[in-house]
Simulated scan of single mutants.
Amino acid sequence: MATMNISLPDPMRDFVQDRIENGQYASISDYVRDLIRRDQNTIAHEERWLRDLDASIDESLQEMKNGGGHDLDEVFETLVTDIQKANGNANR
C-alpha cells in the first residue's frame, strides 16, 4: 500500500480527529479512503447519468427523424389557448 502525506489547516485536522474520536472512522487513513470512495462513486454516477442522457437524446432525435415528436410552436400555442380558456371559465 502506498503512502501519501497531506497538509491540513488546523480546523480541518480537528474535524477529522473528532470524527475518529467519535468512532465514525478508525483512523485518518480510513477517513481519507472513505472520501475517495465516495468521490469515485459520485463520478461513476455522473458518468452513468450522462450516458443515459446521451442515449435519451439519441432516441429522441431518431424518433423525430422517423416523423415522431411534436412541433414546439404548436404545443406552446395549444397550451396558451388551454390556459386562456381555463382563465376565461374561472372568471365566469
Score class of each variant (00 low, 15 high):
39 D>P: 03
66 N>E: 11
59 E>L: 15
67 G>P: 03
61 L>C: 07
48 R>M: 04
35 L>N: 02
48 R>P: 05
35 L>W: 01
34 D>Y: 04
63 E>T: 15
59 E>F: 15
52 D>R: 14
66 N>R: 10
60 S>F: 14
69 G>D: 00
68 G>M: 13
52 D>T: 08
34 D>E: 05
53 L>Q: 09
38 R>E: 00
48 R>D: 03
63 E>M: 12
59 E>H: 15
36 I>Y: 01
42 T>S: 07
54 D>R: 01
37 R>N: 02
53 L>H: 03
56 S>T: 14
38 R>Q: 02
40 Q>N: 04
60 S>A: 15
51 R>E: 14
57 I>Q: 02
35 L>S: 05
58 D>C: 03
41 N>S: 07
36 I>N: 00
42 T>I: 09
67 G>I: 03
49 W>E: 06
36 I>E: 04
64 M>H: 09
68 G>E: 02
41 N>E: 10
66 N>C: 12
46 E>V: 02
69 G>S: 00
63 E>L: 12
68 G>L: 12
66 N>P: 03
64 M>W: 05
54 D>Q: 04
62 Q>S: 14
57 I>S: 00
45 H>K: 13
61 L>V: 09
35 L>D: 01
57 I>F: 01
69 G>E: 00
67 G>F: 04
55 A>T: 08
68 G>V: 12
48 R>A: 06
40 Q>G: 05
60 S>C: 14
44 A>S: 13
55 A>H: 09
37 R>K: 06
63 E>V: 12
52 D>N: 14
40 Q>C: 02
40 Q>R: 06
67 G>Q: 06
39 D>C: 06
46 E>W: 04
61 L>A: 08
52 D>I: 07
69 G>A: 03
47 E>Q: 08
47 E>D: 12
35 L>G: 05
56 S>Y: 06
53 L>F: 06
57 I>C: 01
44 A>M: 11
53 L>N: 11
39 D>H: 13
54 D>H: 02
49 W>G: 06
66 N>G: 07
59 E>A: 15
53 L>I: 08
63 E>K: 13
64 M>T: 14
42 T>Y: 11
50 L>M: 11
41 N>F: 10
36 I>Q: 02
49 W>L: 15
44 A>N: 10
56 S>W: 06
42 T>M: 11
43 I>Q: 13
36 I>H: 02
67 G>S: 08
59 E>R: 15
68 G>K: 14
66 N>Q: 10
49 W>M: 14
44 A>E: 11
36 I>K: 01
59 E>N: 13
56 S>G: 12
54 D>E: 05
61 L>K: 10
64 M>G: 03
48 R>L: 07
54 D>M: 04
